[in-house]
Amino acid sequence: MEIDKGLIGGSTVLLLLSLLEESDLYGYEIIRRLEQRSDNTFKFREGTLYPVLHKLENKGYVKSYLSKGDTGKERKYYKITNHGKKQLAEEKEKWERFSLSVNKVIGGGIHAFS
């Protein structure tokens, strides 16, 4: 299964902040991890990541800095802020409530028709 996914959408903030909670990452790494974690379910339009990252930075959820990683290439890394961590907790809760509700509706339907 492959879902074409633009990143300019609802659940992206949750995905990005949870990845950044684990470690500081630059854009390309974020895409690779998202693909790996989702078992290549998502086929990202990769460029759409950047407006979202910049939006997160404008909102103060992340901070960026330039650094030369192991490869010696200078990259723009993103780091989650305390504000971002709070937001992540909120987004997680929202997501759980949402998926729970969706499952209830679906589950309820299954029960109703079974």
Binding site: R45, G47, H54
Partner: peptide
């Protein structure tokens, strides 16, 4: 090609800049 649509990305970036 994997980057996606230049126009879409540009318009969204402009909103943040």
């Amino acid at each position: 090609q994997d980057m996606g649509d230049a126009r879409e990305i540009g318009i969204e970036l402009n909103k943040q800049h």
